[in-house]
Write a protein that binds this DNA or RNA. Structure first.
Length: 267
DNA sequence: GTCCAGGATCGGA
DNA sequence: TCCGATCATGGA
C-alpha cells in the first residue's frame, strides 16, 4: 500500500472541515474514508507521511478525490498580504483541501444538512447508508444509489432522522433516478448553468447548490454562505461579502474561513 | 425549559 | 424583491 509524503494534507482537518460526512476516526488514529461505493483507510505515520490502504485499481480514484494533483503550497502562499484575517485563518488549516466528491452523495448529504450540526449530518447520512446502501467490507455500507433512495417512501425516510427534509431527499433522488437530472452531464456545464440545474432540485437553495458545486464539481468560484460564514462577513467584513472580489479563489478562501471560524474562533 | 445547527419554502407585503 | 413564520430532530 502506498505511503505518500504530503505537505498540505491532514485528515483530522478534512474530517472537521464540514465538506464530507463519511470520514471515520479509528481508535488507532487512522481514518476510514468512504465515498460512493469505495473505501480507504488512511493512517498517519508522522512527518507528513500517510499510508493509504485501498485496492490497487482505486489509486486514480483517491488521487482525484483528495485532489492530490494540486500543489496547495501556492494556494496558501498567494493569499494577498492585505487580507490579514484570511492569512491568520489560513495559518490554522495547513492540511485543508477541497475534495472532489461524488455529486449524488454530496447533493443528498447537503440536502440533509440544512439546520443540522455536522455530527447530526454524519449520523443521518450514516443511517441512510445502512438502510439503503450496498454492504461493503468491514461492516461498512456504500452511499445509496438514486434508484434505491427513489424507491423509498417519505415515511420510511423520516425514521432515519430526516424530519421535514424527507420529501426533499425523495424528490431529488427521483429526479436523478428517472434521468431528469444527469449529474454526470452537469460536469460539462458552466457555473451558472450548473447552479440552475441544482436549484431545480427540491430542498436545494443557493447555499446547498453552492456546496455541491464546490465540494463535488470543484467549482472554486462557488462560496456558499452558511450561518458561520455569515458571522465572519458581519464580524470581519462589515457585513459586505468579500467573495465576488475573490473570483476563482472565493470557494477556497471560504473554506479556510469556515474552518477557522468554527474550529478556532468558535462561539 | 431554551437555543442552535454548513436552510428552504411559502405567503404576504 | 424582500421579510417573517414555519418546518423535525438532536445536542448543548
Amino acid at each position: 500500500m502506498p505511503i505518500l509524503q504530503l505537505e498540505h494534507f491532514d485528515l483530522s482537518t478534512l474530517y472537521a472541515s464540514g465538506q464530507c460526512f463519511r470520514m471515520k476516526p479509528q481508535p488507532d488514529g487512522a481514518y476510514r474514508v468512504l465515498a460512493g461505493s469505495k473505501m480507504t483507510t488512511v493512517t498517519p505515520l508522522g512527518e507528513h507521511r500517510w499510508q493509504f490502504d485501498f485496492a490497487p485499481e482505486d489509486a486514480p480514484y483517491w488521487q482525484r478525490y483528495f485532489d492530490l494533483g494540486t500543489d496547495y503550497a501556492p494556494l496558501f502562499a498567494e493569499i494577498p498580504a492585505e487580507e490579514a484575517y484570511l492569512r491568520q485563518a489560513a495559518a490554522c488549516c495547513e492540511g485543508l483541501r477541497i475534495l472532489r466528491q461524488e455529486p449524488f452523495e454530496t447533493l443528498i448529504s447537503f440536502i440533509c444538512s440544512q439546520r443540522k450540526s455536522i455530527p447530526a449530518i454524519r449520523d443521518c447520512v450514516e443511517r441512510l447508508c445502512a438502510a439503503y446502501g450496498t454492504p461493503m467490507a468491514q461492516g461498512e455500507f456504500a452511499f445509496p444509489t438514486a434508484q434505491r433512495l427513489a424507491a423509498a417512501t417519505e415515511a420510511e425516510l423520516r425514521t432515519y432522522g430526516l424530519g421535514y427534509r424527507a420529501p426533499y431527499v425523495l424528490g431529488t433522488a427521483r429526479l436523478v433516478a428517472e434521468g431528469r437530472l444527469d449529474l454526470s452531464a452537469c460536469a460539462a456545464l458552466s457555473d451558472a448553468a450548473l447552479q440552475e440545474q441544482l436549484l431545480a432540485c427540491p430542498g436545494v437553495g443557493v447555499k446547498v447548490a453552492g456546496c455541491v458545486m464546490l465540494f463535488a464539481y470543484h467549482r472554486l468560484a462557488s462560496a456558499p454562505v452558511d450561518v458561520w460564514i455569515q458571522k465572519v462577513i458581519e464580524e470581519e467584513y462589515h457585513g459586505k461579502t468579500p467573495f465576488p472580489a475573490w473570483g476563482g479563489r472565493a470557494g477556497w478562501y471560504q473554506q479556510i474561513l469556515f474552518y477557522y471560524r468554527q474550529h478556532v474562533v468558535r462561539q
